[in-house]
């Protein structure tokens, strides 16, 4: 490609794309080694070509590009052999065709990020159906694949204004199915990372749809067994929401208290960490509304027989801002609030 004269470049590009639309069987690792190497080299050329050349992304190439990408990435994901697969403990099954797949994803990313990329042309091919299949790939067990998908979907969301509502809706469906039906989806953390950047960019005042997402999806997500895998991303999304609209604080805190884990101390420690992140950015006016139910729970945690839970709850007292919030509300507090804080004293004793 790099030696071809400009006049022949587009034809050659087309041929290379068609050549790379042949999918190889990597489960049989000795089959077709020559063919696999030819495709790998061709993919490398395509990545280089799109990354370095300007003015080559002419309209007729778009369908060929999307076809090659689709043929390679859209596939039925292998069922997880071990139904008891514990993402925390077990090593994930890596994608055998990664030597090709990685280059296809790399090419797709360079294509999206090319200065010549035109969403107005691409939207004929990157449509709702395409995006839905892309989202289904997030269930891949291969973390390398999910990392590429995350960056790609982030770019697609950014560049295709017309697809944004659809993408949010489909993410909603994936999360709801994950919470209430399957409790199995490998890409929850990656999707939450994208959503963190979307929430961060929300215009004010927040649309009702977005608040519904917080209430109906983000808060119930705390109840899922595999919370530890995506809790950091989930907590970040929640805090982003509160920084956008502090009036949601009471709803979030009461939601977390409603889903407070009763039998899983690891989750309790995570939620205490999230509570502290929220308290770090809380408005004093919001703190007053939630301090009583919140500190009832904190008092229970202090008295927890599990030392890590008790320790994490006591750690709140290492946070000067929380201390100042509590102090401000001790003295002039109305009668019933003064009863909330002494309960802490009992727990501390």
């Amino acid at each position: 490609l790099k030696d071809a004269p400009v006049s022949e470049l587009h034809d050659l590009l087309c041929k290379k794309l068609q050549q790379c639309s042949i999918v190889f069987d990597f489960l049989d690792c000795v089959a077709d080694l020559k063919g696999k190497e030819i495709k790998r080299a061709a993919l490398n050329e395509l990545v280089e070509c799109v990354a370095t050349n300007r003015g080559i992304l002419i309209e007729p190439l778009y369908p060929e590009i999307i076809k090659m990408i689709s043929v390679n990435i859209f596939r039925i994901l292998p069922p997880s052999e071990n139904p008891e697969f514990d993402p925390e403990e077990d090593e994930p099954n890596l994608e055998p065709s990664w030597p090709h797949l990685q280059l296809v994803y790399e090419f797709f990313l360079r294509f999206l990020e090319s200065p010549d990329f035109q969403p107005s042309v691409a939207k004929r091919y990157i449509d709702q159906k395409f995006v839905l299949m892309l989202l289904e790939l997030f269930d891949s067990e291969d973390p390398r694949e999910r990392e590429y998908l995350k960056t790609i979907l982030h770019r697609v969301y950014g560049k295709f204004l017309g697809l944004r509502a659809y993408i949010r809706k489909q993410c909603n469906n994936i999360f709801l199915r994950f919470i209430y039906e399957t409790e199995h989806f490998n890409g929850v953390a990656e999707l939450l990372e994208i959503l963190g950047s979307i929430i961060n960019g929300f215009a004010l005042p927040l649309k009702a749809e977005h608040k519904q997402f917080l209430v109906r999806v983000l808060i119930p997500l705390h109840s899922v067994k595999s919370l530890s895998i995506f809790h950091a991303q989930l907590a970040y999304c929640v805090v982003q929401f509160l920084e956008k609209d502090a009036t949601l604080t009471e709803h979030v805190i009461r939601g977390l208290l409603k889903y407070w884990p009763k039998t899983c101390t690891q989750k309790e420690v995570m939620l205490l960490g999230e509570i502290e992140e929220i308290l770090d950015v809380i408005e004093p006016s919001q703190f007053v509304k939630i301090q009583e139910p919140l500190f009832k729970q904190v008092a229970r945690c202090i008295a927890s027989p599990h030392f890590q839970v008790a320790e994490r709850a006591l750690y709140f007292w290492n946070n000067e801002y929380i201390l100042s919030l509590v102090e401000d509300n001790c003295h002039g507090a109305p009668y019933h609030l003064r009863h909330a804080l002494p309960r802490l004293q009992g727990a501390l004793e």
Partner: peptide, 30 residues
Amino acid sequence: PQKKKKQKLPKSPAPHFAMPPIHEDNLEKI
């Protein structure tokens, strides 16, 4: 002496995985 009160964090620190924000109103030139 009046203890200098720690103010609430102006903005939560972005974790390592934070991605560039995508503004709702306009097309992102990423």
